[in-house]
Amino acid sequence: MTAPRQPFFPADRSIRASENPLEIRHLGVVDYREAWELQAALAQQRAAGEIGDQLLLLEHPSVYTAGKRTQPSDRPTNGLPVVDVDRGGRITWHGEGQLVAYPIIKLADPVDVVDYVRRLEEAVIATVRAVGVDNAGRIDGRSGVWVPADDHRRDRKVAALGIRITRGVTMHGLSLNCDNTLEHYGHIVACGIDDADVTTLSAELGRDVTVAEVTDPLIDALRAALAGELVVSDHTFASAPDPTKIPARSDL
């Protein structure tokens, strides 16, 4: 169900409702809650037709954020604060050195959530591969962008996604680990997945890959993927159950 499936309209068509250019906003380092309020305000204005589609690029100071399905056992053991948020997915960490992209986009109707998520992943895969991680791809059953296991290391996630769609307008988005510390992931069960690891572009490539280096390539790839110029294709290298989908009532 999570692997690329036949889209409901041609894959080379734009998923955006509008043909006007995407407005790109570089925000620098912004406190999580401040950025969240900005996103909510922009999404409301976009839904009302007061503004056009936006793409926010930023970094957050160190913070954990938790979606509704986050389990008590996923939460940090180091006493750092957690912001409970309204996106999909469970717990994650944001911090400097991690590029965050929040597309505030009005999607074409009927809203195709699966297609939107796969297009974001496609853009990240293209960006990550272009910078040198040639084997990055998808794991069927899990969202995000992954680097496959080798002799020494397990599958590891380089980019995470979490989305909210209100009145056909997207908010939240994706985070791509560039040269951030991985220390803070050690205190949580990131995304509720405990049998895999987290990585950065710098760790994978053995050189410093900064947010600045990948920002423009990511913008270009996102623009192309949303427009249907970069077509979603199958970059699945493995299949694994998503442990967060165990649908027991006790899971709530």
Partner: peptide, 9 residues
Amino acid sequence: VESTKSVSD
């Protein structure tokens, strides 16, 4: 409802 890492109204 939540699906595919996305929350929808």
